[in-house]
Design a binder for these strands. Structure first.
Lengths: 345, 345
DNA sequence: AACCTTCGTCGATACGCATCGACTAAGGCA
DNA sequence: TGCCTTAGTCGATGCGTATCGACGAAGGTT
């Protein structure tokens, strides 16, 4: 493997000049720069990451910490990861995977070894056991998710409370006076991931404010219990019933179930989908869609981390950023149509 | 951050002694070793990864290369990643994520920078464009997936051909003379990921050998087209029909569709599930299940990579390892039951 | 008794890069 | 003309670790 010394020799300059050409931290004459760049090209020189990290005290790597919990939806996790990796690369950094087999010791290890210049923590729980560890770390950390005590921490997430509000506001705007939230799976509802609670909190507040009667049942993959929830809502509804759900299976079944009961979505009843995956969307017509913008959340997480890494004093006050959901009204009858109208509240 | 020098001072030995205590590459007296270990513990010393990599020419990191293609099922990808990361950690290495935004240049970069000691490539296509690049790399590489020309490469995957065979053998053993494979999604069938073809090849060969009449249709998420395939199979079947599918949606719908037609799975018809996810399994009773053992594939990929990394001369002949599927016969009527009988062919 | 081996430790060096200080040449200003 | 600044480059040093050679001590062999 060629070193910067080899490049220097090939270009007829000193090693330090090669370094300054690459970093741009001192002025270099056009002529010299071109010679060095040509030598780099010709030798296909790549700076040795270890040496660079040792000398500069920066690894150019960020750590991505993922607890692989059973309640997590692995597919959506993967989407976050992809965006985080791409964004980091755009900022000339790589991503180290830190799974939580080691528990929070893994964090201490990768930071202690100086493998990472910063961390992004995913699947943050309400009372996350990693928080006390993080507070002692000497590198910036960004949480995706909002723990209960977020003081001094840098957190970002989709604004689930606002999403809950929006669902109810949409209902009210469409003339509904009652609706049901067929929510997340029971094990998720009971978990320490608090976004379920944030969503319901927002929804309930809006329901009270707008005079909408709102029920909530957890989702199951069992058709009969979904049908029971639907029927209860229909029976209890004063006017047209409205259905809110973030669950893939529920969203797939809902149109069929409503159809069997002689209700036409978009006319006799409303469906509001929360953060659906693309394949659900294809079949979900005549509905309102809340996009929770996972890609935007991921992108911002990386951007925040970088701004912290560049800051001189990382002892900031902490930061809480909530990405607002996007509301889309879908019309049409079949095929992978695109949204027709879109309103941003 | 404490360094090995600090540890040495605290223990009253030289820095090199600390190094030898950690590596065990030279004999150290019990007494000295305990003193050094106590100092390490007390200072919470962690060797600097950059310095270690620089001096030893090993980064203790493996690169995981994932093209984030739309046809990939992100959830199952994530399962591979989790197992790979855990296995690597058990072997005292970390995992660097290399997404394919940079294309195959990303491989050259991470290896050129000596960020990784080895690579695992996922989502390997029949005629993968990364292959020529890989052949020039100076680090060991393991492919998960089997390209058409695998000569000199180290490849591992589930044995899809054998899985296809097994499906048909299971049919024949259960007395079926005809069946249908409701396969993967069309965009996957048409993609360059060749496991679909390997599966069908194995199935067709076995069908011919055993005199089973076999059809194949791609899967869709559209219930009507699935029903059409089922009806065609029922109509064309001489005896009881058999249904094979790897698709989540199809497997969820199949029992219901059969039931509507008065057929009872396990009695009047057979369902063979190929590599289903846990949530599908919960509802899939009275069926035969082929576990493609993704965790075993991931684990072996890492193990093979390590054996290559430890080998002195990496210019081996290449290696092709296929993990046999596991066949399970499921009985029972409801709930997350465990398999009752299991046969390994 | 002379010699050889093994054990246990130390000092010195190299790994490849970033960075600081120093130096020269050239230009600006009085 | 003399002084000061800036551009452009080089040499030297340090980052923290692994590893090689050397060395004394202890034990074993003839």
């Amino acid at each position: 493997m060629p070193t910067s010394k080899d490049v220097a020799a090939a270009a007829g300059v000193s090693q330090s000049t090669v370094s300054y050409v690459m970093s741009g931290k001192r002025p270099i004459s056009e002529k010299t720069r071109l010679r060095v760049e040509a030598a780099i090209e010709q030798l296909t020189y790549r700076p040795n990451a270890g040496a660079r990290a040792l000398a500069s005290r920066k690894s150019q790597v960020i750590g991505l910490v993922l607890p692989i919990t059973p309640e997590a939806h692995l597919g959506s996790l993967m989407e976050f990861i992809a965006v985080i990796a791409a964004t980091a690369r755009r900022l000339d950094h790589d991503v180290l995977l830190v799974t939580d087999e080691e528990g929070s010791q893994g964090l201490e290890r990768v930071v202690g070894q100086q493998l990472c210049d910063g961390l992004i923590l995913m699947q943050v729980e309400a009372d996350d056991e990693r928080i006390p560890v993080v507070r002692k770390l000497r590198v910036p950390v960004v949480f995706i998710g909002i723990p209960n005590d977020s003081a001094g921490l840098n957190c970002i997430d989709a604004d689930f409370a606002r999403a809950g509000e929006l669902c109810v506001e949409e209902m009210a705007a469409a003339g509904h006076t009652s609706g049901v939230i067929i929510g997340w799976r029971p094990r998720l509802v009971g978990s320490r991931l608090n976004y379920v609670g944030r969503f319901l909190g927002g929804a309930n507040a809006a329901a009270e404010r707008l005079g909408v009667s709102l029920n909530h049942v957890p989702a199951t993959s069992d058709r009969r219990s979904i049908e029971a929830a639907v029927d209860a809502c229909i029976a209890g509804a004063e006017g047209k019933p409205a259905f809110v759900s973030p669950d893939v299976t529920v969203l797939e079944l809902l149109p069929r179930i409503l159809h069997e009961r002689g209700l036409e979505p978009g006319k006799d009843a409303s469906i509001i989908a929360v953060g659906p995956t693309p394949d659900v969307l294809i079949e979900l017509q005549e509905s309102t869609v809340l996009d929770l913008q996972p890609r935007e959340v991921s992108r911002r997480a990386v951007e925040i981390l970088f701004s912290l890494m560049q800051a001189d004093r990382p002892d900031k006050d902490g930061l809480l950023e909530l990405i607002p959901p996007r509301v889309t009204h879908r019309h049409g009858t079949a095929g992978p149509t695109v949204p027709v109208t879109q309103s941003i509240h």
